[in-house]
């Protein structure tokens, strides 16, 4: 029982991020409303970011900011801090995500202006005319 419990605790983070990933991907592919597609895109991107941040966690480690002893000596022990590299990658990826979101919304507004709707089937009908 204990082993099974440890197995769950050791993996549930990956499961959650993969489940969110597929929820987002489903939204992007199967939803008819373009705004829903964009919201799916946000969820999809965030899920990947959660996966990345999960890589950086260590048991017993603290935030990756160097702490100092009372005598001003830095504590430079790698096991005391979380892995900083995934955090850096994710900072970049979050900003990329908001950039893509802004562009998608701008194009969406223009689709509404041209076609008068943001439902995919109605747009396709409008384009066939």
């Amino acid at each position: 029982m204990d082993e099974f419990f440890f197995f769950i605790v050791a993996k549930y983070n990956y499961w959650a991020s993969l489940i969110l990933l597929f929820i987002g991907l489903y939204g992007m592919i199967a939803k008819n409303n373009l705004m829903k597609k964009i919201i799916g895109m946000v969820i999809f991107q965030t899920a990947i970011l959660i996966f990345f941040v999960s890589i950086g966690v260590k048991w017993g480690a603290s935030v990756p900011i160097i702490r100092f002893f009372p005598d001003k000596q830095p504590l430079l022990d790698a096991t005391a801090y979380a892995n900083p590299l995934p955090h850096v990658l994710i900072l970049t990826a979050i900003v990329v995500g908001v950039a893509v979101l802004g562009v998608a919304l701008a194009i969406l507004q223009n689709i509404q202006r041209i076609h008068g709707t943001i439902e995919e089937d109605e747009i396709l009908e409008d384009m066939r005319k």
Binding site: M28, M41, A104, I107, L108, N110, I111, I114, H115, I123
Partner: peptide, 9 residues
Amino acid sequence: YFATFKYLV
């Protein structure tokens, strides 16, 4: 616009 949106997705 719609073509670009599909490309974006």
